[in-house]
C-alpha cells in the first residue's frame, strides 16, 4: 500500500519534470525556428541584390535557371560603376554632405543639450519639449515650403542646400538623446568640476563630453546614417546628376528603361548601402543604444 503510493508520487513528479523540460525544449525550438525563418526573409533581399550584382547582363536576362544563384560571378558591374565618374561623384557628394551634416549636428546638439540639461534658462523646459516635437515632424511634411526657401536662397541643385536642410532631420533626435545622457551624469560631478575651477566650456569639453562619450558616439552614428540615407530632400531639391548624393543618384540615374542594367543598379545600391552597414557592423552596441535611447531615456 505505502510502497505503491510512493511509486505513484515518484512517477508523478517524474512526469511533471519531464513535461516541464520538454516544454522548455519545445519553446527553444520554436524560438530558433522563428529566428531562422525571420533571418532568411530579412536577409533575402540584400542577398538577392548581391547575387544579381555579381551577374552579367546576359545571365540576368536568361530566364531558364535559378535566379537565386550565380553561375559565372563577375565583378564587371562594380568595375564599371567605379570607373563611372557620375557614380564617383555621387559618392563624393554623399561623403561631403554627411561629414558636414554630422559635424554641424553634433556641435549644435551637444551645446544645446548641455545647456538644456544643466544650465537651464527661461523657456528651456519648453524648448526641450519643442526639440522632441521637432523630432516627430517627418521630412515629408515640410519639403515643399523648404523647397521654396532653398530655392529663394539659390541653393537648389547644390549640395549646400542639402547641408543646410539635413540638420533638421538629425539635430532634434541627437539633442534629445544627448539631454538624456547628460542628465544621467550625477550633479556632483559638475559641482566638483566647478570647485576644481572649470568654466562652463571646460566643464563641457573636459567632463561632459568624455563621460557621455557612448552617447556622443550613438548620436554621431544616428546623424551619419540619417544623412547618408536621406531621400526626400535630395529628390526634391536636386535634379542635376552631378550634385546628387548616392541615394537619389542610384535610384534615378542608374535606371535606364531599355537595357538590363539590373546588375549595375544592384551593385550601386549595395555600394551605397555599404558605409552604414559597415558602421553598424563595428559599432552595433552604440547603434542600438542610440536607437532605443529615444524612448528609454529622457
Amino acid at each position: 500500500m505505502s510502497a505503491s503510493t510512493a511509486s505513484t508520487i515518484v512517477s508523478y513528479t517524474g512526469k511533471k519534470l519531464g513535461s516541464l523540460r520538454s516544454e522548455r525544449r519545445w519553446a527553444l525550438w520554436t524560438a530558433y525556428a522563428s529566428l531562422i525563418v525571420a533571418t532568411i526573409i530579412f536577409l533575402a533581399p540584400p542577398f538577392y541584390m548581391l547575387v544579381t550584382s555579381l551577374k552579367s547582363s546576359s545571365e540576368i536576362s536568361n530566364l531558364s535557371g535559378n535566379p537565386w544563384i550565380v553561375r559565372a560571378p563577375t565583378l564587371e558591374n562594380y568595375m564599371e560603376l567605379i570607373a563611372n565618374p557620375l557614380f564617383r561623384g555621387f559618392f563624393v557628394n554623399s561623403v561631403i554632405i554627411t561629414l558636414c551634416v554630422v559635424a554641424i549636428s553634433m556641435v549644435i546638439s551637444v551645446l544645446a543639450a548641455f545647456s538644456l540639461a544643466r544650465m537651464k534658462f527661461w523657456g528651456s523646459q519648453a524648448l526641450a519639449t519643442g526639440v522632441f516635437l521637432t523630432y516627430l515632424v517627418p521630412d515629408t511634411l515640410l519639403f515643399i515650403p523648404l523647397y521654396q526657401i532653398v530655392g529663394s536662397l539659390g541653393l537648389l541643385n547644390s549640395i549646400w542646400g542639402l547641408i543646410l536642410i539635413y540638420p533638421t532631420l538629425t539635430v532634434p533626435f541627437c539633442t534629445w538623446i544627448m539631454i538624456g545622457y547628460f542628465a544621467s551624469i550625477p550633479k556632483e560631478l559638475d559641482e566638483a568640476a566647478l570647485i576644481d575651477g572649470a568654466g562652463w566650456m571646460q566643464m563641457l569639453t573636459k567632463i561632459f563630453i568624455p563621460v557621455a562619450l557612448p552617447g556622443i558616439i550613438a548620436a554621431t552614428i544616428f546623424a551619419f546614417t540619417v544623412s547618408w540615407a536621406a531621400f526626400v530632400y535630395p529628390t526634391a531639391f536636386v535634379t542635376t546628376p552631378e550634385h546628387m548624393p548616392l541615394t537619389i543618384g542610384v535610384v534615378s540615374q542608374l535606371i535606364r528603361g531599355d537595357t538590363f542594367a539590373w546588375g549595375q543598379i544592384m551593385a550601386g545600391a549595395l555600394m551605397a548601402a555599404l558605409p552604414p552597414v559597415v558602421v553598424y557592423a563595428f559599432l552595433m552596441d552604440y547603434y542600438i543604444a542610440g536607437l532605443t535611447a529615444g524612448a528609454t531615456k529622457g
Binding site: P186, E188, E191, A192, I195, G197
Partner: peptide, 18 residues
C-alpha cells in the same frame, strides 16, 4: 566656487569616471 579656494568631498565622491 573656483575662486573661493575651497575643496569639497562629496557623498558619492564625484570622481571623474574617465
Amino acid at each position: 566656487p573656483r575662486d573661493r579656494d575651497i575643496a569639497m568631498v562629496f557623498q558619492n565622491y564625484a570622481l571623474y569616471p574617465h
